[in-house]
């Protein structure tokens, strides 16, 4: 920045170049061999600082930086509020922008079903799935219930007090699912703002059960908490190989949380392919796989239309349960 005039001149020049560039993009030329981001990428997080989505976003952008996977920095940007609605609205406003991506969780499909919003998951460009987060059914270690069967028997007799993150979000969804499939008395569901606090309230005996993600329950395992089952479709490998799935116990409930990457509406194809490729590189890193293993996430990579179809199915499951629970409006 040497002088004002230089700055103005260069600014005008670049504005011209950009304008021409924009026109060219509009003309829908065939995809160039290697599109690359030319300025810092906004990495939108659908939740506040310190939550699960935040950790993933910062981890991924840190890995990109550490392993020099991209020519520009990925800047994590929190857009909390409205269970993701604020973030989605922001990204929707960036239609066609190749320098904005968003990390999502279940609220990405749930929020538009529950709230009256001018958009749905379909408006966004699916880039890739990087992992599926799991849910365990946790009880206190000294609780009398040693199996799901005993838990169900108790929950059929009286309304148990349970806790989860947020209201009308994935934790409550799972409990509602459970009620519907196992014919339980309605749970008294106490919503908290964060998963860590939920686990603390179970350890402290304020509530009887939670469906915390493994990473939230693990600090208290095996000292204080006991998982009774996993909501995954198949058994986990490693530490929790003995943990039964709900499905094999006869309750047809499986649920996993999407940790996926989406772009704004009408994202250029070459940008979409670029980010999908980049996420694959991140996914294949040893650091990333170790992180997933440690926190009992399923490593699952999907991209492009395959991912789009997967999200469609994921959405349908939510629509069914939410309608049955009477949450949609």
């Amino acid at each position: 920045m040497r002088g004002k005039r230089l700055r103005v001149v260069s600014a005008v020049l670049v504005a011209l170049v950009l304008a021409v560039g924009l026109l060219a993009l509009g003309a829908d030329r065939p995809a160039q061999a290697a599109w690359q981001p030319s300025k810092p990428v906004e990495f939108i997080i659908m939740a506040g600082q310190g939550g699960g989505a935040d950790v993933y976003a910062r981890f991924i952008s840190g890995l990109i930086e550490k392993h020099k996977l991209a020519p520009v920095p990925f800047v994590p940007l929190n857009k909390a509020g409205g269970a993701g609605a604020v973030a989605m609205e922001h990204v929707r406003g960036k239609s066609g922008d190749p320098h904005t991506i968003m990390i999502t969780l279940s609220s990405f499909v749930m929020t538009p079903i529950i709230q009256k919003l001018p958009f749905s998951y379909k408006d966004f460009t699916p880039i890739s799935l990087v992992a599926l987060d799991n849910f365990f059914l946790w009880v206190q270690k000294d609780s009398p219930w040693k199996s799901v069967k005993e838990f169900v028997a108790a929950a059929q007799k009286e309304s148990l007090t349970v806790a989860g993150t947020g209201s009308k979000q994935e934790d409550e969804l799972i409990f509602t699912f459970f009620e519907q499939k196992a014919d339980l008395k309605p749970f008294k569901y106490v919503p908290f703002k964060g998963g860590g606090t939920v686990a603390a309230n179970l350890v402290g005996g304020q509530v009887k059960a939670t469906v915390n993600n493994p990473s939230e329950g693990l600090p208290h395992y095996p000292g204080k908490l006991r998982p009774l089952a996993t909501f995954a479709t198949e058994r986990h490998k490693g530490q929790f190989a003995d943990l039964p799935t709900m499905k094999e116990l006869g309750y047809d409930i499986s649920y996993q949380m999407m940790r996926g990457i989406f772009g704004p509406p009408k994202m250029p194809v070459e940008a979409r392919e670029y980010y999908a490729g980049l996420m694959k590189k991140v996914f294949d890193l040893e650091d990333f796989q170790a992180f997933l293993d440690k926190n009992v996430l399923d490593a699952r990579y999907l991209a492009g239309d395959e991912f789009g179809r997967w999200v469609g199915g994921y959405n349908d499951v939510h629509v069914q349960v939410i309608q049955k629970a009477g949450w949609s409006k």
């Binding site: 600014a11 670049v14 504005a15 950009l18 300025k39 810092p40 906004e42 920095p73 800047v75 940007l77």
Partner: peptide, 17 residues
């Protein structure tokens, strides 16, 4: 600190760095 400040409608074209 990687905090992008508001760019406005034309800010990105004016200051492209």
């Amino acid at each position: 600190f990687l905090i992008p400040l508001p760019k406005g409608r034309f800010g990105e074209q004016l200051l492209p760095f």
